[in-house]
Amino acid sequence: MPIYNKLVRDHIPAVIERAGKTCTTRRLEKSEYIQELKKKSQEELTEYLQASDDESALEELADLLEVIHALAKCHGADIEEVERIRERKAEERGGFGERIFLVEVQDA
Results as ranks from 00 to 15, higher is better:
Ser31Thr: 14
Arg18Ser: 14
Asp107Ala: 10
Glu81Cys: 06
Glu87Leu: 13
Glu47Cys: 05
Ile68Thr: 06
Glu59Lys: 14
Thr46Pro: 01
Leu7His: 00
Glu66His: 08
Arg99Phe: 06
Ala14Ser: 12
Arg26Trp: 04
Gln50Leu: 12
Glu55His: 14
Gly76Val: 04
Ser52Gly: 12
Val105Pro: 02
Ile16Tyr: 03
Arg26Val: 02
Gln106Lys: 12
Lys89Ser: 01
Leu64Met: 13
Gln42Arg: 11
Ala77Val: 07
Leu61Ile: 13
Asn5Met: 13
Lys40Val: 05
Gln42Phe: 08
Lys39Leu: 11
Asn5Ser: 11
Gln35Tyr: 12
Glu87Gly: 02
Leu64Gly: 03
Val82Glu: 00
Glu66Cys: 02
Ala51Pro: 04
Leu37Pro: 00
Asp107Gln: 08
Ala19Trp: 05
Ser52Lys: 14
Gln35Pro: 03
Ala70Tyr: 02
Tyr4Val: 08
Ile34Trp: 02
Arg18Trp: 08
Thr46Phe: 12
Glu47Ala: 10
Ser31Val: 15
Ala90Cys: 04
Tyr4Asp: 05
Tyr4Glu: 10
Val67Leu: 03
Arg86His: 10
Cys23Tyr: 06
Phe96Trp: 09
Gly20Phe: 06
Asp53Gln: 04
Ile12Glu: 13
Glu44Pro: 00
Val105Phe: 03
Leu65Gly: 01
Ala19Ile: 01
Ala51Ile: 02
His11Val: 13
Ile100His: 03
Gly97Glu: 09
Leu58Met: 12
Leu28Phe: 05
Gln42Trp: 08
Glu47Val: 04
Ala19Leu: 15
Ser52Tyr: 08
Glu36Met: 15
Asp107Ser: 13
Val8Tyr: 11
Leu65Asp: 02
Glu98Asp: 12
Val103Pro: 00
Val8Pro: 09
Thr24Tyr: 10
Arg9Gln: 09
Leu102Ile: 08
Lys39Trp: 12
Glu59Cys: 09
Glu66Arg: 05
Glu36Arg: 13
Asp78Arg: 01
Gly20Asp: 05
Lys38Gln: 14
Asp63Lys: 09
Glu44Val: 02
Gly20Arg: 03
Glu17Phe: 00
Arg86Lys: 14
Glu66Asn: 08
Ala62Gln: 03
Leu37Tyr: 00
Glu91Thr: 05
Arg9Pro: 10
Gly95Lys: 01
Glu29Asn: 11
Val8Gly: 09
Gly95His: 07
Val15Thr: 15
Phe101Pro: 00
Glu104Asn: 15
Ala108Pro: 11
Tyr48Ala: 13
Val103Gln: 09
Ser31Met: 11
Cys23Asp: 06
Arg27Gln: 13
Arg9Met: 05
Ala51Ser: 13
